[in-house]
Design a protein around this nucleic acid. Sequence first.
DNA 1: TATTAAGCGAGACGGTACGTCACGTCTTAGG
DNA 2: CCTAAGACGTGACGTACCGTCTCGCTTAATA
Lengths: 211, 211, 211, 211
Amino acid sequence: MTSATSRPDTAAAQAPADPPVEARRPGRPRDPQADAAILQATVEVLCEHGFGAFTVDAVAAHAGVGKATIYRRWPSREALVLDAAATLVPQPDVPDTGSVRDDLIALMSGSFEDAASANKQQLMAAVTAEAVVNPEMKRLLRDYTQRRRDGSAVVVRRAIERGELPADTDPDFLLDLIAGPLFYRVQISGRPIGDEVVADVVDVVLRGLAH
Amino acid sequence: MTSATSRPDTAAAQAPADPPVEARRPGRPRDPQADAAILQATVEVLCEHGFGAFTVDAVAAHAGVGKATIYRRWPSREALVLDAAATLVPQPDVPDTGSVRDDLIALMSGSFEDAASANKQQLMAAVTAEAVVNPEMKRLLRDYTQRRRDGSAVVVRRAIERGELPADTDPDFLLDLIAGPLFYRVQISGRPIGDEVVADVVDVVLRGLAH
Amino acid sequence: MTSATSRPDTAAAQAPADPPVEARRPGRPRDPQADAAILQATVEVLCEHGFGAFTVDAVAAHAGVGKATIYRRWPSREALVLDAAATLVPQPDVPDTGSVRDDLIALMSGSFEDAASANKQQLMAAVTAEAVVNPEMKRLLRDYTQRRRDGSAVVVRRAIERGELPADTDPDFLLDLIAGPLFYRVQISGRPIGDEVVADVVDVVLRGLAH
Amino acid sequence: MTSATSRPDTAAAQAPADPPVEARRPGRPRDPQADAAILQATVEVLCEHGFGAFTVDAVAAHAGVGKATIYRRWPSREALVLDAAATLVPQPDVPDTGSVRDDLIALMSGSFEDAASANKQQLMAAVTAEAVVNPEMKRLLRDYTQRRRDGSAVVVRRAIERGELPADTDPDFLLDLIAGPLFYRVQISGRPIGDEVVADVVDVVLRGLAH
DNA sequence: TATTAAGCGAGACGGTACGTCACGTCTTAGG
DNA sequence: CCTAAGACGTGACGTACCGTCTCGCTTAATA
């Protein structure tokens, strides 16, 4: 996810900007180091002391920053968690390897292959849980996963054109079938995810969908 | 999950009595109606006002019960949520329909078919999130899903004996492949789960696994 | 004060008692040892752990008694404290030594001479404080001090008859003048009270009142 | 009593600064209006609803203040009561009327003349009771009464110089003899204190002490 | 160079929920 | 009917965080 989605204050609500140069607002500009310090402190607090100890005060203390400096940048704890998560789980690029199998493996790798690390699990679970409850978080989470859905659509279309998949293959259903088991392993089974696991899942699903 | 796992005070793991009669403790016994009232109130509060408004005070008020009566039975909010979740998501029986397809569909139905209802989503997400952070919750959650894993093992063994699945089929991996997509739909995709979805997933996976 | 004032249940509200023999009520009689055990436990708890730790539960545990057994005998914590105080500070007898000076010294001795002991101070202060707030306690406290007032009236009357005091001497004012300084030493000054102090106060007051 | 004794956080006993300017601490300063509002609310709650209904929550609600704002200033309910008491019972000035009789009457007036009002009684009794139990409160109460003792010493010294009192008069004993009866009337007798009562007590004691 | 406007760390603010404790009452099985 | 034990509803306790609001200061761009 881009920061803009959860940090609307940064670039938004600025002067009409006649000149395309960034309309510098008067007054002292925001300390650009604070953003990074806060995000890093968020990740550290979450990973070191768990989500139960995740406190805006704790993040502020950890980052050596005032609470107001956090709330000036993020509207809520949730938005902060989400942006911290985005720091850890990068957006995938849409792959084009020539084979649907390798495309799907590439699409999944960044999101799950080392997602078993405790901190990513924490963030993913926290974001997921909050999303169920909080419509805004739900929206942000859907925005974040949209890229993967778009990737899936492209990959499937190309696979259909190459004759690797039936013409009526639903790319969203395909994504459920592949991302689902990986997500489930992380959240419920608690078993590790390596490259071979991703490949195994993709193989079973592709074989099951052919026909 | 059994209540005993998260309500350790109830029977207190004692066995001094030579006769098998349960050694009645002195004093006024706990009101058995309170247990039910508290669990029901927990579900109601979670469903009606969302997880953000889930408050022990609110549960107590809803149940017409003192807070101490809740804390006498459950050591924390989390344990309470867990037991309430166990109320909503019943343990599956191990099915034996004669075909692996119908067995798996039966195994999944109780857990997911109407899990899309907001309240179950809330509970599942909350429990999952807490489990990532809280080792005790993790253990309880694994205890809870153990039954389904046991069921999967039995179903797979019978399927192998009938020749419906390859002899080297891993029942845990099978469970990842089937429960994963359903769980993912509930938590991430947010799309509904009906009988046909469960059947579709099972069909794809079985076809993919059969050589 | 007699127990009857604060323990109205004991003898009161019993059958019309046609035969003068004590009308034995049906059922198990009250354990007479419990009364003493409770009062003693009250004193112990108050003295050992201070008034802040004075708790009905603590008294019950200390006395090896159920809480209900306490509440069956005393209507409230306050009544219990009061009766425990009465245990420590005995009612004075009306003295008749032949001289007003010795009469007054005798009247005060039991109440104050060793009242400086921490436990009596605790009880006196607690009772006094509660009395200001609680009308019932106020009444009980006045009942308790009534005996001393009665004694003062008798002593003063005899002193007037003997010509030791002016005919218009107000016995209540006399009591204020003598008991006041002693009480004040206990509660505020914190200085010890010995026999000579009582005598000094009595001497000053009697000399001051004679004309 | 000075506020500093029971509100140790306020100035925090620091003196690192070479210049005598008070070293302003960083952060938002405490709202000075809150102090007054809390003290006033304390007095109101005590007077309107009695000591039994004296609750930190009630004070907070009455003052329109959060509970934390109270606990930031006073470490306990008791300290709060003490400071509120200091609000009501002003420290006496040391009088110098030229006669020991008028000096003593003046010294007592502020403390007792209208102390019979229910609210002052409540506060005095509560403070006294707590002092017996709580050494810190005891110390604070003695600090508070120190001024009166100092006044007594000065008044007695001047009276001795003027020949109004014997040279060996003990000013503390004199204070016991005069303040004691007044205190006793307030706390035990429950009879009113007017100017004439103070004068009567002073007259008897002075006459009794003058040989 | 002086003014202005916003950001900065710090921390107080009114709230709300936490989990604990004690109240005085009620409910067991047994004496 | 009393007993010890202990659960009950109630409500205050003192703590912790929430998100907001001052403080005095710092940092640029404007005047």
